Amino acid sequence: MTAGRPFIVAIDGPAGAGKSTVSRRVASRLGFAMVDTGAIYRTVALAATRRGIALDDDAALAVLLPELEIRFSPSPGGGQRVLLGEDDVSVEIRTPPISLGASKVSARPVVRAGLLDLQRRLACAPENRGAVLEGRDIGTVVFPDADAKFFLTASAEERARRRHAELGARGDASTYDEVLADQLRRDKDDSERAIAPLRPAADAQLVDTSGLPLDAVVDALVRELEARLSGDGRSEA
């Protein structure tokens, strides 16, 4: 652990690999803060859309970013809410159009630079024993010296199945084929973009979640992290 800051866990992976759910559960099990950087970029995309700002308009995005008050708050039913000012946008940022919008704004250097300090401040708050950060460049740019880095993946079909079930539970009528097409398009955009492309950090542990209950993935990561926290240095995940 780096002196003067909490224990930092970086978790990345393509859409639908389970990284958001796994990150939340790992953070809860360890008593760590959860910083959902994907939710931050989604919220930027939502705010820009609401104001009619094109998602590739760097000048307008640069003006928008300092005006945004993005924070997380505990949810009464467990987990956390995403707040834009006093507006709870937790559900609105998870729609397919905002998901694609998040992929677009997160490829803009002005946005990534503008949110860097926010992500670090949320993770390093004095009350945090540790923090789990889920997002694209956590282990390479935001916290290149993160204490643990994991890259979760799964087959495209498995990821689309999970996403379709998640959207259905929220009342979204998208078909499986539509979800799969959106996901493949997002994977292509994320993998080919020049800024923070989708690929694991050189020192990240790859975890294939295909066919695995997410609880089993959480158990494996928690065992690994508890071992690192205890200082014995073993690697099981």
Results as ranks from 00 to 15, higher is better:
R186P: 06
A60Y: 12
A3K: 12
D187G: 04
V89P: 05
T37Y: 14
A216E: 11
L212A: 05
L30C: 14
P97R: 06
I53V: 13
R185F: 01
R94H: 09
R136C: 14
E67F: 05
R170Q: 14
I40P: 12
A169D: 14
I98K: 13
A33V: 08
A27W: 06
G101P: 06
R162D: 02
R71T: 14
P197R: 12
P200F: 07
L184G: 03
R193M: 02
L84T: 07
G31H: 10
S73A: 12
E134L: 01
L229W: 03
D147Q: 11
V132P: 14
L118K: 12
G79I: 02
L116T: 01
L30V: 09
F151K: 05
R129S: 14
L225V: 14
P97G: 01
S174R: 13
R71I: 02
R108E: 12
V44T: 10
A148T: 04
D57G: 05
T153V: 09
E158M: 02
D215E: 14
A125P: 09
R223V: 07
A165N: 08
I53N: 00
K19Y: 10
R5E: 15
V141E: 11
S75M: 02
S20I: 11
A156C: 04
L100R: 15
D147R: 15
F72S: 08
Q119K: 00
A123R: 13
D87K: 06
R223Y: 11
S155C: 04
L116H: 14
S235H: 12
P14C: 02
V91Q: 10
V132C: 11
A173L: 15
C124K: 14
L100I: 02
K19W: 05
E166K: 08
P14I: 08
L133Q: 01
R162M: 03
A45Y: 09
R170Y: 02
A165G: 10
E67C: 00
P144R: 08
